[in-house]
C-alpha cells in the first residue's frame, strides 16, 4: 500500500529565500504525526502543500498516491482559527454544514439529512448543545471541536490540523489530544502543535520542520532510547531532544501522580 502522504525532494518559496528545502517525507496509514518547529519554520506551508493550496517550486507532493487537489475529498482540514472572523454571524451548526457543500447542488438551505449528519458530528465531538450558538460566542476549545466536526462530515481518511490547541487552556489541551487519539483509530492525523506535553503523551511520531525536516519515527520516541542524541540537524531549535531525553516526560508523570 502506498503511503498516505509522500513528499519527494520538495522545496518551496514565497518568492524570497526557500521556506522549505529538499524535503522528503512520507506518512503511513494510521500514523499520528506532530509537526513542530519554530515560528516561520514552514509548518503551515507544509500543510498547505499537502492540501494543494500551494504548489511546490520543486519536487512532488502525493496524497493517497494522487495529486493533492484530486485527493482533497479524503482530507479533513482544521485551519488555525485566529485567521477567522469571530464576529461572523454564523452558528456552530452552519459551520459544520459548510463541510457538506456539494458543487453543482445550489440554492439556499440544506437537506434534512445533511442537518442530521452535522448534528451527529457535533454530538460525537460533545458539542451538540451548542449547535445554534454563534461560533464567536463559544470558547476556544468548543470552537476547535466544531471545526473538527466540520472536517469529519467530509468522512476524511486523513486529518490535517494547524495549531488546534493555540487558544485552549492546559486541561483542555489534554482532553483535546485524547479526542484526537480516539479519532486516530480510524484516521491518519497530522497536527501542527507547539504543545510538547500533549504531543509526548499522544502522538506516534514527530517531525521537526525548520526549512529542512527531520522525522522522528515511533520507536525513537518510545522512551527506551532516551539516551540517544537527537539526530536533528536543527538541534538547538528542535525540542524532540527534550522529549526523547526525558526532560518533558517526567513532568508528565509528575502531573499524573
Amino acid at each position: 500500500m502506498s503511503p498516505v502522504i509522500e513528499l519527494n525532494d520538495v522545496s518551496f518559496s514565497y518568492g524570497g529565500p526557500p521556506v522549505l528545502h529538499d524535503i522528503t517525507f512520507s506518512v503511513e496509514a494510521g500514523e499520528f504525526v506532530a509537526l513542530i518547529g519554530p515560528n516561520g519554520g514552514g509548518k503551515t506551508t507544509l500543510l498547505k502543500l499537502m492540501l494543494g493550496l500551494l504548489k511546490p517550486s520543486r519536487g512532488t507532493v502525493r496524497v493517497f498516491g494522487r495529486h493533492p487537489k484530486k485527493a482533497r475529498q479524503h482530507i479533513g482540514y482544521v485551519p488555525q482559527d485566529i485567521h477567522l472572523n469571530l464576529n461572523f454571524p454564523i452558528s456552530a451548526l452552519e459551520v459544520v454544514l459548510m463541510g457538506m457543500i456539494r458543487p453543482r447542488k445550489r440554492w439556499i438551505g440544506h437537506p434534512e439529512n445533511h442537518r442530521q449528519i452535522a448534528l451527529s458530528a457535533l454530538g460525537r465531538m460533545g458539542v451538540a448543545e451548542y449547535a445554534g450558538i454563534r461560533i464567536g460566542d463559544l470558547s476556544g476549545g468548543e470552537r476547535q471541536r466544531v471545526f473538527i466536526a466540520r472536517a469529519l462530515v467530509t468522512r476524511p481518511k486523513l486529518l490535517l490540523l494547524d495549531e488546534p490547541t493555540a487558544s485552549i487552556d492546559t486541561k483542555g489541551q489534554t482532553d483535546f489530544f485524547d479526542l484526537l487519539s480516539e479519532l486516530n483509530r480510524e484516521i491518519t492525523i497530522v497536527v501542527v502543535s507547539h504543545d510538547l506535553l500533549a504531543i509526548s503523551n499522544h502522538v506516534k511520531s514527530v517531525a521537526c520542520v525548520n526549512r529542512a525536516l527531520h522525522y522522528h519515527r515511533q520507536d525513537e520516541l518510545s522512551g527506551k532510547i532516551t539516551e540517544a542524541p537527537c539526530p536533528c540537524t536543527v538541534e538547538e531549535l528542535c525540542p524532540v531532544g527534550m522529549v526523547t531525553r526525558g526532560t518533558v516526560l517526567p513532568a508528565v508523570n509528575k502531573r499524573k501522580n
Partner: peptide, 24 residues
C-alpha cells in the same frame, strides 16, 4: 445571492476551507 448562498457564505467565512471543498 440566494442561488449561490452556501458558497458565498463558505468563501466569506473560510476561504481556504471553501477551496478545499471544491467551491470555485
Amino acid at each position: 445571492v440566494i442561488f449561490f448562498y452556501n458558497e458565498f457564505l463558505a468563501l466569506s467565512y473560510d476561504q481556504e476551507f471553501a477551496r478545499i471543498r471544491g467551491v470555485p
